[in-house]
């Protein structure tokens, strides 16, 4: 296991035998150059297409459009936080935020619970044909959200669905159910992906741990509950954070389903509200929506990370 020892050497430190100081300083210089070559491409792109848009959005959200008289040319002037005042008064926007929060509170635990159950079953000695199940459950992840929404849109529709016996009785696309119909589409696409992330971290647990527990008479269920789940908690937290981010970003599925269902308004989710407002075009208000949404997402996933980490360490 020589590699393990080698890996523990802190990166970049000089081996103790290297006494030639000119060689060292040469090496330093070439290392610094190499670091620049490695980091620069990402740094430039990150600044241009990540940092700059955020700054630009903040600037835009602080501007208001003014006209000189009724017919004057429109002009952008500094408006302070007046766009944010509009955001906080915008009931449709807050209704959409409430909608995706409700969606997240229900859908994320169900999806991750399913993913965890399937991952534990795949990891248990109970199943045959694991490879098949793994691929079958993961397959929907290859379906883009738009395409998944189109497929399920047809499957939900009262006239075209192969399950029209059900869909002619229950309208999955009306106002009271359509949010949960969207939740079903998102669940269908992402359960397998989350399952694989959890499963991969189950595979990383050394089997000696189970063998010891089994010798002590622990059942499969006890091993799963007492040993496996605590050990894969970091993976579950990771999937949780990505699911929260995904929920707040919801756009493709509801936007696509709009051609199947009239119950989805043009401000159904926060991102739809951004898109609709930008199409007016009211870029300043849309930019303010974007900033609020980005901050809310950031805070929510950050708080979730911190809260779960504290729980784990206790």
């Amino acid at each position: 296991m020589a590699t393990l020892d080698q890996a523990q050497n802190p990166p970049g430190t000089n081996p103790p035998g290297n006494k030639n100081s000119r060689l060292v300083s040469n090496k330093r210089r070439s290392t610094r150059k190499a670091v620049a070559v490695f980091v620069a491409p990402f740094a430039v792109l990150f600044i241009l297409f990540y940092a700059a848009p955020i700054i630009f959005a903040i600037i835009q959200s602080l501007l208001v459009v003014e006209r000189e008289g009724t017919f004057g040319a429109p002009q952008q002037v500094f408006g302070g936080l007046s766009q944010y005042a509009l955001v906080f008064q915008d009931q449709a926007f807050w209704a959409s935020v409430g909608r995706v929060l409700l969606f997240g509170v229900v859908q994320v635990p169900i999806m991750l619970g399913m993913a965890l159950l399937f991952a534990l079953l795949l990891d248990s000695p109970l199943l045959k044909g694991k490879k098949f199940f793994r691929l079958a459950f993961f397959a929907p992840y290859a379906v883009p959200g738009v395409i998944a929404a189109i497929m399920w849109g047809f499957l939900y529709s009262p006239s075209l669905s192969p399950f029209s016996a059900v869909t002619s009785e229950i309208n999955f696309l009306d106002g009271s159910l359509v949010l949960w119909s969207i939740a079903n589409i998102v669940t269908w696409v992402y359960v397998g992906y989350n399952m694989l992330i959890i499963y991969a971290s189950l595979l990383a647990i050394p089997t000696e741990i189970y063998e010891a527990a089994r010798l002590d008479g622990a059942s499969n269920a006890q091993i799963a509950w007492r040993i496996k789940i605590p050990l894969v908690t970091p993976a579950i937290i990771l999937t949780g954070v990505f699911s929260i981010i995904g929920t707040l970003q919801l756009l493709a599925e509801p936007q696509t389903l709009r051609s199947f269902s009239s119950a989805i308004s043009s401000t159904y989710t926060p991102n739809l509200a951004v898109y609709t407002t930008a199409s007016i075009p009211n870029y300043n208000l849309a930019a303010a929506f974007s900033v609020v949404l980005a901050i809310a997402t950031f805070i929510l996933s950050f708080v979730f990370l911190k809260a779960t980490q504290r729980k784990v360490s206790q």
């Binding site: 990540y50 700059a52 848009p53 959005a57 954070v241 970003q249 930008a278 849309a286 997402t297 950050f302």
Partner: peptide, 18 residues
Amino acid sequence: LSGVLVPATALALPLFLI
């Protein structure tokens, strides 16, 4: 790391403006 937590769709509109 904080870039990971910023939703990509929140960037779409600002990117359009830029």
